[in-house]
Computed example of a mutant assay.
Amino acid sequence: MDAERAARKDDHVRLAREQRDEPRGRTDFDDLEFVHHALAGVDAERVELSVRLGEWHWPTPFYANGMTGGTEWTTRINRELAIAARETGMPMACGSVSVALDDAEAAGGFAVIREENPDGFVMANIGVGRDADDAVRAVELLRADALQLHLNAVQETAMPEGSRDFSGWERSVERIIAASPVPVIVKEVGFGLSRRTLRRLAELGAQFADVSGAGGTDFLRIENARHDSASRSAGGDFAMLSGFGQSALACLLDAPADGPRLLASGGVRNPFDVVKALAAGAGAVGVAGSFLQPLLAGGAEALVPLIERWIAQTTAILALLGAETPAALGSTDLLVRGRLAEYCRLRGIDLVALASRSGP
């Protein structure tokens, strides 16, 4: 791999970690509340956390979302993440495989996932704009069960070496979905998928979409931080776009009934956020930054007990809410407040109906 591309891969992880070290303010997850019904709880022993998405059956309703891969450092990250996924049964995705498709020497940074997790559910990942044949190669490299296809127009806009031509993206999505030997999950990288976008993705053949909303790892900030002072003086700094996009919850609540099956990620901090996303319409929930910190600090040895706590706590919260399965959360009563409520009102979403889903 050329030095510039390798540095970018490592920079993304380093800068994402630095973001996680900063104090975190209020997010849209804090604006979603459950109406507490004190007699609605069930026996936690009867809660079944597994989810079914089409033909897939996942033991956990959350998964490790795509992070990285391709360099010596990120290969170690993928190895430890794969071990943690293997030990807990949690599905996982890798970061963009594109670098390995262009440079065979980088392939080991992704193949290590299958070496450590031969029987787990693994998602490969490529960016829109790649050739349809690349979808097949990415799946073959990881013997993947699914392919994430990421849309990252905001990141490309801020990236010093990014593309500014998005005109062929719809055709690329259609071709990659048609060529992929496994189902494709079209995902954003942290800026959300709107109602209109989700409808269009369904028309292009997408069965699944990860809304990947704002509030988690901010790739706009990451790319701004990668600009040197010379590029900033030439107009390269896009900090003016800070806050651009929609949160995962905003996307879920605004999603059309005729869109793809939804997954959600972006700013998931804890099991309660997982439960909120499931209640808002996600079939499963992706986690990246909240798993990256312990992974970097202590590898799989630190991450496995954290995932096990998330499983136990998610189970307990479902029992508290009277939901024996993640799907049953669709009948819980949701109170939407603050900035998220303002978004919903502007988009014509019936907040009163959300607050009374369990009945009068």
Rank of each mutant, 00 (worst) to 15 (best):
D2V: 03
A3E: 14
A7V: 12
R8N: 05
K9H: 06
E18T: 09
T27W: 03
E33V: 00
V35N: 01
H36C: 06
G41Y: 10
D43N: 06
R46L: 05
V47C: 05
T60P: 07
F62R: 09
F62Y: 09
I77H: 07
I77P: 02
E80P: 02
A84R: 00
C94Y: 03
V97M: 11
S98L: 06
S98W: 08
D102V: 10
D102T: 14
G108I: 11
V112P: 03
I113W: 04
P118V: 10
V122D: 09
N125G: 07
V128M: 04
V128P: 00
V128Y: 01
R130H: 08
R130M: 12
D131K: 14
A132T: 09
D133R: 15
A135L: 13
V136P: 12
A138F: 05
E140S: 15
L141N: 13
R143I: 05
H150Y: 09
L151W: 01
N152F: 06
Q155Y: 01
A158V: 12
A158C: 03
P160L: 07
F166T: 11
S167M: 04
S167V: 07
W169I: 02
E170C: 01
E174N: 05
I177A: 02
I177T: 11
A179C: 15
S180D: 07
S180E: 06
P183Y: 04
V184N: 07
G192S: 12
S194Q: 07
R196F: 02
T197F: 00
L198K: 01
R199C: 03
A202P: 07
A202I: 00
A202Y: 03
E203Y: 00
G205A: 04
G205Q: 03
F208W: 14
G213A: 12
A214G: 06
G216F: 05
T217D: 06
F219S: 12
L220C: 08
I222A: 06
A225C: 02
D228M: 03
D228P: 07
S231Y: 07
S233I: 09
D237R: 14
M240C: 10
F244W: 15
S247L: 08
A250C: 10
C251P: 13
P256K: 01
A257Y: 00
A257C: 02
D258V: 05
L262F: 02
A264W: 03
G267N: 03
N270C: 14
N270I: 11
A277Q: 15
L278G: 08
A282R: 07
G289I: 04
F291W: 08
L292W: 05
P294Q: 04
E301C: 01
L303F: 02
L303C: 02
V304F: 02
W310Y: 08
I311T: 09
T315A: 09
A316C: 03
I317Q: 04
A319P: 12
L321F: 04
G322Y: 09
A323G: 07
A323S: 14
S331K: 15
G338E: 13
R339Y: 00
L340T: 01
L354S: 08
